[in-house]
């Protein structure tokens, strides 16, 4: 174990895991309780268009993904607030368009030879120091937002109509929440990739929700679970020579199904 930790890239991977877990725990909790998992998936996949654009323009892929994800989040927030009934269709269209746009721009990039797959499935073992700083800043931003607006977020997440009647600007809080989800998605691209983002945002909060009875508690437990899954997944990837992102999700998924089985058995024994 000490051998593994002596590698610089493993240390960076662990730091990336810690920073991503904090974001996953906080934003994942809000994604789950607000039932915006599909929207988060839409944002994640639309962000792929930003990565393609970044390659085409020669800018940082995370910056490209960030711009696309934030713009997608604002558009999706406006659509869902205005017309809930057909919002899923528009989100599905944006999801597909974003990916297609990214691939086309990557195709058009002269001398393109970057591994686009690393953004689909993550490459936590190749996180540079500069990305760690970027992730740290985003984490501070997310924590600050949640701390500063916790009561408004709490009220809007539980009952948007009531929160609005009290004078909370629910539409704005909801839109910023989606923008935060977009930023979390960008954070997670490095760790598990776009395809697997949804699992990281949903599995830890789902398990946490069954064990605690407060939003804050759910955020903290989700962050801890995310970190445990990330470290365990990384270890499995190292030992069995697997893709790190897929390995992290495999560990999370196994824990998820074991947890469900445990809950069902407990329920059965009780009755």
């Amino acid at each position: 174990m000490t051998d593994i930790l002596s590698y610089g890239f493993i240390q960076n991977a662990l730091w990336a895991g810690v920073l991503a877990s904090i974001a996953c725990g906080i934003i994942g909790t809000l994604v789950v309780v607000n039932r915006i998992v599909f929207i988060s998936g839409g944002i994640a996949h639309t962000a792929y268009g930003g990565i393609g654009m970044a390659f085409f323009l020669g800018i940082s892929p995370l910056l490209g993904a960030g711009i696309f994800a934030v713009v997608a989040a604002v558009i999706m927030a406006l659509i869902t607030l205005k017309d809930k009934n057909r919002s899923d269709t528009v989100i599905g269209v944006m999801w597909a368009c974003g990916m297609a746009f990214g691939i086309i721009l990557a195709d058009l990039t002269p001398g393109y030879g970057v591994d686009l797959m690393s953004y689909l499935f993550g490459s936590i073992l190749a996180v540079p120091d500069s990305d760690l700083v970027y992730m740290g800043v985003l984490d501070i931003f997310i924590i600050g937002y949640v701390l500063f607006y916790f009561r408004q977020i709490h009220a809007v997440s539980f009952d948007m109509e009531y929160a609005t009647s009290m004078g909370v600007r629910s539409g704005l809080i909801y839109t910023v929440l989606l923008v935060m989800s977009a930023l979390a998605v960008v954070l997670l691209i490095r760790v598990v990739g776009l395809i697997l983002v949804i699992a990281m945002l949903t599995i830890p909060p789902y398990i946490a929700e069954k064990k605690v009875c407060s939003l804050k508690g759910m955020m903290i437990l989700s962050s801890i679970l995310s970190l445990v899954f990330t470290i365990a997944g990384l270890y499995c990837a190292y030992v069995f020579n697997l893709t790190s992102g897929a390995s992290i999700i495999a560990v999370s998924s196994v824990c998820f199904f074991v947890f469900i089985l445990y809950e069902k058995l407990k329920e059965k024994l009780r009755s």
Partner: peptide, 30 residues
């Protein structure tokens, strides 16, 4: 806004939300 307190119909809320009875009532004080 805030001068009127509103009791919505029950169906509009997610009942799995991790919140206690006391916490819901405290939302009125936010």
């Amino acid at each position: 806004r805030g001068a009127i307190a509103y009791v919505p119909q029950r169906g509009t809320v997610d009942w799995d939300f991790p919140v206690t009875v006391a916490d819901v009532a405290m939302m009125g004080r936010y």
